[in-house]
Every structure is written in C-alpha cells, then in structure tokens.
Design a protein around this nucleic acid. Structure first.
Lengths: 141, 141
DNA sequence: CTTGACCTTCCCACCATGGGAAGCTCCATC
DNA sequence: GATGGAGCTTCCCATGGTGGGAAGGTCAAG
C-alpha cells in the first residue's frame, strides 16, 4: 500500500505521514524497489491511532507517549490515565481561557449598536476608555 | 521612552513590539540619535489597544483591521461589530471543538480504572476497538 | 511511447512568540 | 576618564502542526 492509500484509509495526510516519520513518531516505513513507502495493516492501525489521538487534541509529544504505552502490553493503565488526565486539565484551561474571551467579547458586541454612527463600545473598551458601555450605573454583566 | 519601558507600560514584550513594527502593524517608531526606538503616550495607547485585542483572541490580521477602524473617526460601528462578531463565531467554533474533545476524553478517563492492570479503555478507544468501555460491548464501528 | 497520476526530496509559508549572539549606547560609580 | 552593567540594536533560529509547491523519478493504462 502506497502512502496515498494509507493517507486516505487513515485520515492522515501523506504530508503528515512523512512528517511523523521524519520526527520519529512513526518508524521508518518499508520501501518498494522504486523507493515508495509501503504500508500494511499494522501501520494503518498506528496511523488511525494517531489520528484519533489528534482528534482528542493530544500533542505529538503526548502521542509519542501514548504509542509507547499502547505498544507495551504490560503498561499499567494508571500511566495512560495520568497522561490523559493531564491533557484533560490542559483542555480545561484552554476552555476557560476561550470562555472568558467569549464572555467579554459577546458583552461588548451586545453593547454596540452596530449602525452607521461612529461611536462604538468595542473600540472604547479596547482603547482603555471606561465608556458607558454597560459598566456604568445599572446592570453590570 | 525606550522600548523596554514601553513594553512594561503596555504589557507587550519588547520583542513583540519590534515584530509588530516589522510586519507593519505598528508604524516605524521614532529613533533617538543612537538609533533607539522612542515611544510616546500615543504609541503607548496603541500598544495597549493591541494587547487588549490579543487578550480577546483577535489575530494580528484582525487587529490591523481594528486599528484601522479605531483611527478612522468616521467609521460606522457596524463595521467594528461585524469584525467582532466574526471573531465571536470563531471563538464559538473553537469552544465547541474543545468541548467535544473534553467530553470524549473525560468519558474515557472515567472509564479507565487507572491501576496496575494493563487493560485500558482509553487505549482501546484510540486503537479503534469498541471495547466494553461504556458502549456496552456489542456495537461495532 | 506518451500521458497523467502518484511518488520522492527539499525548501518555504503560516501564526505568535521566545531565545540568544554580537555589537553598540547610556549612565552611574570609582 | 575608565569601567561595568543594563539596555538597546539587528540577525538568525526554534517552537508546533500543517500546507503549498518545485523538480524530478515511477507506474499503469492507453
């Protein structure tokens, strides 16, 4: 199986398969006489493993760890769980970060009338003015 | 005011200030006789504007747009709001993406006993097996 | 034998940021 | 006046994950 078919079958682009091999995430692929990389069932399973891990947001470094644990039949599930938990905490931090951006921005957006007039609470906020953009007088946020 | 003080006062690193100037986000800064960049109140306000925009997750490209609107006193707030709304949608997509990663992963983590035994629903899921990891062991994908 | 799809390697781009080297400037202290 | 250290300059490199594309070799179908 050539790299193109492996890419289609795994959902990992050919470009990325080469890259993963280059950085040592994948072992050197076997080669045909002409130098084409050759992939088999086992490689396919590894590629899919990587793709699923990426879908969960794991970094390539973490995936290297996961692959190691995966291939070690005697690994304690404790280690896998620890790795996953760490990533979960990372996701939580990212979520909080994005959520607070969203909260702040959606407040500003809701305060901006968005018509032809130039005055705009969004720009006022970004420029550091404490305009009457919703923080004045009555209903906070 | 030298770049270091401007950095401290604005919360944008000196490194980034130079970079922003390099990519045209900031105008060329004035220079002292010795070639040191010089910053004034107005520059400081621009730098803070950029930092606040970054804090809301705007890309440098979007910030270029925001700066243009900010400096155009006749801009219609409509345009600012549109730009902000687009970014808000971007944030929403990111949030959904992260949230679904988190949901999937936290389910897996909760299914993994995390002890010394090697069997692990997390790895089973990543490797494409539909183990008994909460999906009741008969379905197949 | 040609054509077109596929493969190879290699370099460059994005985005935002940081690290560090080599060399110059400024200011305080001796 | 000399010296030392902090701060400035430019320039190059790295990160992380992905893509684009050029130049050239290979394979299969017509």
């Amino acid at each position: 199986m050539n790299i193109g078919s492996a890419a289609k079958a795994s959902g990992v682009s050919a470009k990325m398969i080469r890259h993963y091999e280059g950085i040592g995430l994948l072992p050197q692929a076997g080669r045909s006489d002409a130098g084409y990389r050759q992939y088999g069932e086992k490689d396919l399973r590894t590629l899919q493993f990587i793709r699923r891990s990426r879908d969960l947001g794991f970094s390539l470094g973490e995936i290297q760890g996961l692959l190691g644990l995966w291939q070690d039949r005697a690994r304690p599930s404790r280690e896998v769980k620890a790795l996953a938990k760490r990533h979960l905490e990372f996701l939580d931090r990212k979520l909080e970060e994005l959520q607070s951006m969203k909260n702040a921005l959606s407040h500003l957006v809701s305060c901006c009338h968005g018509d032809e007039r130039p005055d705009c609470p969004i720009l006022e906020n970004l420029s550091g003015e404490n305009g009457s953009a919703g923080l004045a007088g009555h209903g906070g946020r």
